[in-house]
Write a protein that binds this DNA or RNA. Structure first.
Length: 152
DNA sequence: GCCAACGTTGGC
DNA sequence: GCCAACGTTGGC
């Protein structure tokens, strides 16, 4: 089983929205590296840290789980959608998404500065300079450490 | 293939 | 709102 971190802007879709909706499809990712993680590497049952980006403060908010593996993101075919991709067709999709379900909300929110302060988390892609990936792999020990920080 | 211009992300 | 860092596009 693998572990992941997925960023979402809470103004758009927060952990509370996921809790209410129970599950969601993770559409709108338009970055090749992030796409490949979703298309190729994410497997049913993988655990996801739900991260609030562009937030006040930003940080880890909860846990989700992959319930459907990579399939074409329908928003790329819709000319009226913000994420329309003119070069894509249903026969040749460019972009992929996964479905995730709500697992739990962390008892205490783990802000980014706490993550940065923890020596065990120094190697996380998240805290490395200039990393803007919205979907990224996380090591099991890092995942566990953040969950531990959030369960106090 | 290089690189400037432009767009986007995301912390602060 | 600012701006650094990065990705993408397009002219050459």
């Amino acid at each position: 089983m693998k572990y992941w971190l997925m960023k979402s802007e809470p103004d758009v879709f927060s952990i509370d929205d996921l809790k209410k909706k129970k599950k969601t499809h993770w559409d709108g990712v338009r970055n090749f590296q992030a796409r490949n993680f979703m298309k190729v590497e994410m497997k049913k049952g993988d655990k996801v840290l739900f991260y609030h980006s562009n937030a006040d403060p930003s940080g880890a908010a909860g846990i989700a789980e992959i319930i459907k593996e990579g399939y074409p993101d329908h928003t790329q075919f819709d000319p009226d959608d913000k994420h329309f991709e003119p070069k894509a067709s249903p026969q040749k999709p460019y972009w992929y998404m996964v479905d995730v379900k709500f697992v739990e909300k962390l008892k205490t929110f783990v802000p980014l500065n706490e993550i940065k302060k923890n020596p065990k988390l120094r190697k996380m892609k998240l805290v490395q300079r200039g990393n803007r990936l919205s979907v990224m792999p996380v090591e099991k020990n890092e995942f566990d450490e953040i969950v531990k920080m959030g369960s106090k």
